[in-house]
């Protein structure tokens, strides 16, 4: 079977149906990449028509959860952009070293790599005792996957190469225990971590975060939803709190210059001004 090709009107109809049936709104996602993921999902589940996909998503909870897991994009690597993590340590994390408590939010996360990377770094810095980390995901299946702390063997080659760029002569396997054909991040690193399922756009967030990791999330939104997400995160940060975006993302909405100051242009780290 060839990959089905769907039109924009079919995609919009599907989005509307999901919104009505499931109260999850993809209407302001970047349509080009969303379209391809929907087409790939249909190919994987041997569906040739959008109507049949709509019907299955409406009727079948398990199928809907599979769809959600597939559509929401994972972070595929530990220590993606090692330069970013090195900059984050110098500019941000070291400031929290002597804090009584500091709070980090990783919202809309669909795989564990950002969290696991952060935990490894905080362990290296002896900063795990006073941190509270909250990770959220829209997908129940993704939450369950992240909680397992497992990474497949086939992904470890790229993770190992990234880690070597982060820490010369370091060994990423020091942080993992082999479990069959996977590696499990050591469980003592998870003491102060909460992983929850929620709809980011429909849920109130507390305003007490010192750092929000939001790398490569807004690339899946259109400008409207990107602005909405960043404004929501701005109100969730403490004054002088930090937010990190992906290296190809920028905060560009009108008035953002008054709300955020850039602390690392190359690694896209911003600080809340007020």
């Amino acid at each position: 079977m060839n990959r089905p090709i769907i039109g924009i009107s079919e995609l919009k109809s599907l989005i509307l149906r999901i919104k009505t049936a499931r109260n999850v709104d993809f209407s302001n996602y970047a349509l080009s990449s969303l379209k391809r993921r929907v087409e790939n999902f249909m190919l994987e589940y041997h569906l040739t028509e959008v109507d049949k996909l709509q019907l299955k998503l409406y009727k079948d909870d398990f199928f809907y959860n599979l769809f959600l897991k597939y559509i929401l994009v994972d972070t595929t690597e530990l220590f993606r952009d090692p330069e970013f993590w090195l900059e984050l340590i110098e500019i941000v994390l070291k400031k929290f070293k002597h804090s009584e408590e500091y709070n980090i939010l990783i919202p809309e996360c669909n795989s564990g790599e950002e969290l696991y990377t952060l935990l490894i770094i905080l362990d290296r810095l002896n900063m795990l005792d006073n941190v509270k980390i909250c990770l959220t995901s829209l997908s129940k299946l993704n939450v369950e996957k992240i909680e397992t702390a497992l990474i497949e063997l086939k992904k470890m080659e790229v993770n190992e190469a990234n880690f070597e760029r982060f820490e010369k002569n370091g060994n990423i396997f020091d942080f993992f225990i082999k479990k069959g054909r996977s590696f499990k991040l050591k469980s003592d690193l998870f003491t102060n971590v909460e992983i929850i399922q929620h709809n980011f756009f429909n849920t109130e967030l507390p305003g007490n975060y010192n750092l929000i990791l939001y790398r490569n999330k807004t690339i899946y939104y259109n400008q409207l939803l990107k602005t909405k997400a960043l404004k929501k995160l701005h109100s969730s940060l403490k004054t002088n709190g930090f937010i990190a975006l992906g290296i190809k993302e920028k905060i560009t909405y009108p008035g953002a210059d008054n709300e955020f100051v850039t602390v690392s242009e190359s690694e896209r780290i911003y600080k809340k001004q007020y």
């Binding site: 924009i8 970047a30 349509l31 080009s32 990449s33 391809r36 993921r37 994009v73 994972d74 972070t75 595929t76 993606r80 952009d81 490569n216 690339i219 899946y220 259109n222 992906g246 190809k248």
Partner: peptide, 22 residues
């Protein structure tokens, strides 16, 4: 196309990037 990103083109004539799997 930037390293480690896929490059898409959206209606409205702008570039959209993605970190979907290789």
């Amino acid at each position: 196309a930037p390293a480690n990103y896929h490059m898409y083109f959206d209606l409205g004539n702008f570039v959209s990037l993605s970190t979907e799997p290789a």
